[in-house]
């Protein structure tokens, strides 16, 4: 299990077989009240390892991570990490690559967390660095644009914005097995 977000009364999680290859992915859904598993949507083989499934503007937004070395498939390193917009049936509609400057900070790992902000920007984390990258969809071409890099208290991976408290971001602290709430400054 890589990361989750709450959609309605359900906890929607991105799961993959990382670090096994070939990469396979699935969406696992849980009831937020009982935390019982409700259903699974198998995505099978895809353009990477599913690390994020977010909901925004009536669409699903998935991150398919790719890695250099452990968990990576031959001929497809971290540069092939993609943000994919999907319809309600999890069918891909559009896809974007990540900014090269962000990929360099994530290398040799990949994007491990992402959540749409209420400011219309996409916030993404890598696998290890204590940073969150504010990104936006490009007006043209297929690479996301880096708007700002913001320091984070915890070293990357799963994130999600608080649905009620503005600029409160929930992250995980792996070293202490904690969930951490941080107040994130606005983008410059």
């Amino acid at each position: 299990m890589n990361s989750c977000t709450v959609v309605g009364a359900e906890l929607v999680c991105a799961a993959s077989n990382y670090p096994a290859v070939p990469q396979t992915s699935a969406v696992e859904v849980f009831d937020t009240r009982t935390l019982k598993h409700v259903r699974s949507v198998s995505l099978g083989f895809g353009p990477g390892s599913l690390t994020v499934m977010d909901r925004h503007d009536g669409k699903w937004w998935a991150v398919f991570a790719n890695y250099e070395g452990k968990g990576g498939e031959p001929g497809r390193d971290y540069r092939y990490t993609a943000l994919v917009r999907m319809d309600d049936q999890f069918r891909a509609e559009a896809s974007w690559a990540f900014p090269e400057a962000v990929l360099a900070r994530m290398a040799p790992k990949s994007c491990s967390g992402l959540s749409w902000g209420d400011d219309g920007l996409i916030y993404a984390t890598g696998h290890d660095r204590s940073e969150v990258y504010a990104l936006r969809l490009p007006e043209a071409n297929s690479r996301l644009e880096l708007v700002d890099t913001i320091g984070l208290a915890t070293p990357g991976q799963a994130i999600d914005w608080d649905p009620k408290e503005k600029r409160r971001l929930w992250t995980i602290g792996r070293g202490l097995s904690e969930v951490v709430a941080s107040e994130i400054r606005t983008v410059r």
């Binding site: 204590s130 940073e131 890099t149 913001i150 320091g151 984070l152 208290a153 915890t154 602290g173 202490l176 904690e178 951490v180 941080s182």
Partner: peptide, 14 residues
Amino acid sequence: MNTRARYISDPTTC
């Protein structure tokens, strides 16, 4: 630094 939680709130300014 948040010493109680042992986290650096913003490592980019450290």
